[in-house]
Write a protein that binds this DNA or RNA. Structure first.
Length: 432
RNA sequence: GUCCCCAUCGUCUAGCCUGGUCUAGGACAAGAGCUUUUCAAGCUCUCGACACCGGUUCAAAUCCGGUUGGGGACACCA
């Protein structure tokens, strides 16, 4: 039975890199019908915070990575102490007193060559002579990272350790501890790191680093996961858009790249748009409702949901993030539209009173106010006027929406409804 | 400084293991154009890479060595 774990330390928000590590662990567990275990590494009492634990759990769920078991290292101190005592008794560790007289347990590093067979990188060799003796239990009584990690991974029966590249140099230290404690060695797989656009690790200077930041920016969890998946893995057949469910079937840890990847927001944007296009309008609407409520564009306890779903559907294919929606679709919610001055200058500088009045008249004369009738009325009118459709389409769009871009004009007219259309066109009709 | 990892278009990658099918394929970005309804949507096209040197071989992006470059790790942090 495959058992993998994701072991974040709650000293900050869940990072993009952490999210990616969680993804590959989760994927591996799913593909092998194994267990995905979550372990909160909160041995650093000073830096660990409950709010970070909460945020990490929330983000993990948001990404869709559900865990089978969860452990907290802070509740396992006695276990680490027990194993440290064992090493002490066997003479594999010794006690050292610090200046204040407090005792720490130190591991005596044996001299030997250490060979790791990494599932992604192949064989890696180390010589333990480069290693200093390792602290196991700090003088405050808590376990160090490498020690707690080994004791936990072994006692939790973790079979595969999938983690970031930055842990490669911890691996020989840990292997020595596995040997000393008589534990069976797990398999190791080290994922390449994600880099920022300017080289070096992804950092706040390069852009947002927390998973929750991307949620707040309006990215869909599925799109983020898909994007992260493409960083160092490929489903083959020139495929790019692939959801987690399907990736489970195709995933093989051996096909994970060795090269570090640069995080490219532009491609994430594109990916998000791909997901937005195919997302169920109702589900999308549920995500958008809070954004509109926040801007007071709707009263979240009293609004026409079916109508909103239609509006969302109108826009979803052109959005980059869901956060774009309130700004792009504001004219459907505001009693008075926000006019883009450049749009006004370009399309409404000329007096179109006659044309707007005529179109208003045509619309009022319609038997049925539906898409087909609206378009027919408009097309018929421009034909009678002997002008090109686009000469009038753009000014009407600007008058109705305040923008030069948006969904098709006839859809806009249809969903705006006859009253609002008449009112907004009326503003541009000069009285004699 | 020491140790370790990595190296295909600007970016993500396919190909590399099992050398010839690669004048290196796809995607994002960028640029150009089309779409007699806009574009941040769609379609078409263009630009653009095997880091370098040497070796092995009839043949190297693919195998080997080195150089250079990038990254990571060297805490009583995790």
């Amino acid at each position: 039975m495959v058992r993998v774990r994701f072991a974040p330390s709650p000293t900050g928000f869940l990072h993009i890199g952490g999210g990616r590590t969680a993804l590959f662990n989760w994927l591996y567990a799913q593909s092998k019908q194994g267990k995905f275990i979550l372990r909160i590494e909160d041995t650093d009492k000073l830096r660990s915070k409950q709010e970070y634990v909460d945020e990490i759990l929330f983000s993990l769920k948001w990404l869709g990575f559900n865990w089978d078991e969860v452990y907290y290292q802070s509740q396992r101190f006695e276990l680490y102490r027990e194993y440290a005592d064992k090493l002490l008794q066997q003479g594999k560790a010794y006690i050292e007193k610090n200046p204040e007289g407090k005792e720490a347990v130190i591991f005596k590093v044996p001299q030997q060559k250490i060979k790791v067979n990494d599932l992604i990188r192949g064989s890696i060799e180390f010589d333990s002579s480069i290693l200093k003796d390792q602290v196991l239990i700090k003088s405050d009584g808590t376990a160090t990272y490498n020690f707690a990690c080994v004791v936990d991974d072994a006692t939790m029966n973790i079979t595969h350790i999938i983690r970031g590249d930055d842990h490669i140099s911890n691996t020989p230290k840990q292997i020595l501890l596995y040997d000393a404690l008589g534990f069976k060695l797990p398999e190791f797989a080290h994922l390449p790191l994600i880099m920022g656009m300017e080289g070096g690790r992804l950092s706040k200077r390069t852009g947002a680093t927390a998973i929750s930041d991307y949620r707040k920016m309006g990215y869909l969890a599925g799109a983020l996961v898909n994007y992260l998946l493409l960083l160092s893995w490929s489903p083959g057949d020139n495929r790019e858009v692939i959801d987690a469910k399907e990736a489970i079937k195709l995933f093989d840890i051996k096909n994970v790249n060795k090269t570090s990847a640069t995080f490219d927001l532009k491609k994430l944007d594109w990916m998000n748009n791909q997901y937005l296009k195919k997302e169920d309008p109702l589900k999308l609407t549920e995500e958008i409702i809070p954004l509109l409520a926040e801007k007071k564009y709707i009263d979240k306890d009293n609004f026409d949901k079916d109508y909103l779903v239609s509006i969302v559907h109108l826009f979803q294919g052109r959005l980059t993030t869901i956060n774009d929606f309130p700004d792009w679709a504001d004219f459907f919610f505001l009693p008075e539209i926000k006019m883009d001055p450049l749009a006004k200058e370009k399309h409404l500088a000329k007096d179109l009173s006659k044309e707007f009045a005529l179109f208003t008249e045509k619309l009022e004369g319609l038997e049925k106010f539906d898409l087909v009738s609206i378009e027919e009325a408009f097309r018929g009118m421009v034909k009678d006027l002997g002008i090109e459709a686009k000469v009038l389409i753009h000014p009407v769009r600007v008058a109705l929406t305040g923008k030069t871009i948006g969904p098709g004009l006839f859809e806009v007219i249809y969903y705006l409804g006859p009253e609002r259309v008449k009112e907004r066109l009326g503003l541009w009709i000069k009285k004699e």
